[in-house]
Amino acid sequence: MFVPEDNPSTRAGVALGRQLYYDVRMSPEGQRACASCHLQEYAFSSPAVRRGLPHINLAWSTSFLWDGRFEGTLEEAMLMEVEEFFVTDLERLRVPELERMFDAAFGTPEVTAERAAYALAQFQRTLVSDDSRFDHYLDGDDSALSESELRGMSLFYSERGECFHCHATRLLTDNRFHNIGLDAEVTGTGRGAVTGQAREDGQWKTPTLRNVALTAPYMHDGRFQTLEEVVEFYSEGVVYTDTLDTLITIGGFRLSAREQADLVAFLHSLSDETFTTDPNLSDPN
């Protein structure tokens, strides 16, 4: 995990970040907070937000949003959220109880967008998910996964399934961009729209699969409601275009019904209840 020298995590800093994450005073109209669309029970995503992304292990990310149009540190990403997405009216935050928290975190009660962003980044670094049944299995508990989940895992880590090349490492993402063959027309979409490179058309960021059973709807446009639909897509629905990733088998992975069910079962084993019920990550009020 990268922690910049000018923003080491402190108890008071994390507490302020958590407060702001759940505080509707962050929005100029005083109506929404980060937690309105990023809910703990859904691994900090929301079933009501079609194009949403969860907040899971973002401490290891250096590019943000589905098309990666924001690159930089977590601090910079949070500042962008505060200044550009929320356009937070700092006057709303200049109230004694918050100023006391800014004071505890940064040494003076001054409220600035940068301080809010730094505190939010400190809180984000506590949103670490590493306690799923899959983790227990990796850590040596052979009974953590069922027979079907184990078969799904074998497929996930084979070249018949291919999932592991992109949903890679223990983060279950490579933090790179790929065209997985969702659409027949990809010109000027996804990563390509950001970089202007035709060969990146139709590429979107690989989402982590941690807690994926909780983060429906799926894909950058929320087109799939269930994991069954996602796996069926990988099996039969892949559409060929020039920029289709060479890791995706043209025509789809062609998995049997049982293989698809096993993969879905494995994806369910990635849910981390410790994370979604951790009282330190919940609404502090």
């Binding site: 060479t246 995706i248 043209i250």
Partner: peptide, 17 residues
């Protein structure tokens, strides 16, 4: 990795890992 034209004259991916 790359693509080749297979016996069915279709593009197919190869991944020499």
């Amino acid at each position: 990795e790359g693509r080749y034209i297979n016996d069915a004259s279709e593009p197919f991916n190869f991944r020499a890992h």
